[in-house]
Structure formats: structure tokens, C-alpha cells
Amino acid sequence: MPARTPLQASRSILLHIALIVAAACSLVPFFWLLCASVKQGDDIFRWMFLPWTNLGSLTLDNFRRLFTQQNFGLYIVNSIFLSSMFTILVVSLSSLGGFALSKYDFRGKKPLMIVMLATMLLPAQVLLPSSYELIYHFGWLNSYLAILIPGAVSVFGMFLFMQAMKAVPDELLQAGRVDGCSEFRLWWEISLPVVRPMTGAYTLMCFLASWNSFLWPQIILQDERKYNLPIGLANMMGMPEYQTAFGTLMAGTFLSVLPVVVLFFVLQKDFIAGLTSGAIKG
């Protein structure tokens, strides 16, 4: 590194001040959220962050109330179930379909891809009324089937895997065939490992999208015991005991956001490892 001139040093300091201010704008709301969720009663209005003169008054009551007075535990379980099932379905369907589009020529492939491409630009919201009608006729209202089965269709995912699977060498597949691999195993044991880093990123994206999903589940789910976290929290916000629920609501938001951030942190390392190791060489 070259020696620093005084001018450079002062520029560097200014630069870092600007970045720290910007980072604070991003991070302070998280910190404020955490603080609000461990304060009790009027402390929330009296102290902006923590009651510094009386830290003994901090409490976990808000979290306790979430699980005793609200169905929050149930919402978490529902959200975890819905998000994992959704992710598994979308990723397996898209990778299998994308593999077929990428590595085989079959009748109807061109028209299929053209129709798929044409639907990509459509705002999905136009489908809400007619999908609701369809689900109504299926008798799937208030059922998770209505969320998971239509949700398994991802044109974006199909194209993503189709593009990524082009990196799988045809010679490798041919060698697999000669060795007696079934076509299914060519997908599962040869092609999927090659696109593992991309699969990881896509898995995380799908999980996030489902974890944060609100509009369609809100339309479908009527029984409060089936709500996911976004619906549960949004409804808690509108409750009449709004004033007392302030801290509880913040505790709930904190718990909803935390797993996503942690998951991203953990998987971020996995992506890098996946990228550097590489499934095949040469």
C-alpha cells in the first residue's frame, strides 16, 4: 500500500464518516426494534433506545406475551412449514424442468418456451381474481394446497436452471449414460451438483419470498390458526389493545426478521465455498 498523504488521510476520514452515517440509517432501525422489544410499559415512550439509568427494568415479557396471549408460536411453525415446502417444491420442479429444457430436444419445446417467455412480463396480480375463483371451485380455500401447488410454478426458476445447466458438459452426461445411469440420475447425481452454487442462491431467494409473502395467503387463509407470520403480525398491528401491544409487536417483528438475516449470513459462506470448490474441473 502506498504511503498516505495528509490530503488522502482526511479524504479517507470524510469518506468513512459518510459511509458510517449511511450504515447507521440502515442499522439503527434494527437496533431500535430490538430495544423496543425488551422495554416495558411506559419506558417505550420515555426512552428512545434503552432506559440507561435503570437497565434492570428491561424485560422479556413482550416475548412471553407473544407466545401466551397471541398465537405467535403457531405463526412461526406455519411460516417455517410453508416456506420450506414451497422452497422444496419450486426448486425441484424448476431444476428438473430446466434440466429437460437445457439438455434435451423434445417436441413442443420451442412453443412452450415462447409461451413461458411471454408470461414473464405479466404482473402476477392480474391473476388474483381468476385464481381465487379457480381455488374456490377446487375447494381449496383456507388450505395450504392453494398456496403451495400454484406457487410451485416459477417461469423465472425454469429459465434460471435452464441457463445454468448449460454449463454441464454433454460428454459428462454421455459418459454417465454409457455407465448405465438413468436419465433421472443424470439430473440428480451429475447435473445438480454442477449448479450447486446457483441452487443455493435460488433456494435462499425462494425461502425469502415465501417467508415474506402476504397478499395471496391473506386471500386464501381465513382460519387464524393457519396464518403465517406476515399475516399474523399485520393483524396484531390492527388490534384494539394497540397501545399495550407496542412492545409485543416489536418483539414479534424482531423474531420474524431475525431468522432471515441469520440464514443469509450462514448461507452466504456456503455460496462462497460452493463457488470456489466447483463441482468439476476442466
Binding site: P29, L208, S213, F214, T253, V257
Partner: peptide, 15 residues
């Protein structure tokens, strides 16, 4: 900077 993007619209709205 990126961490805020992980938070869904509903959670951002509640916050």
C-alpha cells in the same frame, strides 16, 4: 446496506 433488503415489505411496514 444490503441487510434491509432481506426484510419483507410487511415487516418493514410494521416496523
Amino acid at each position: 446496506f444490503f441487510s434491509t433488503h432481506l426484510v419483507g415489505q410487511v415487516f418493514v411496514a410494521v416496523m
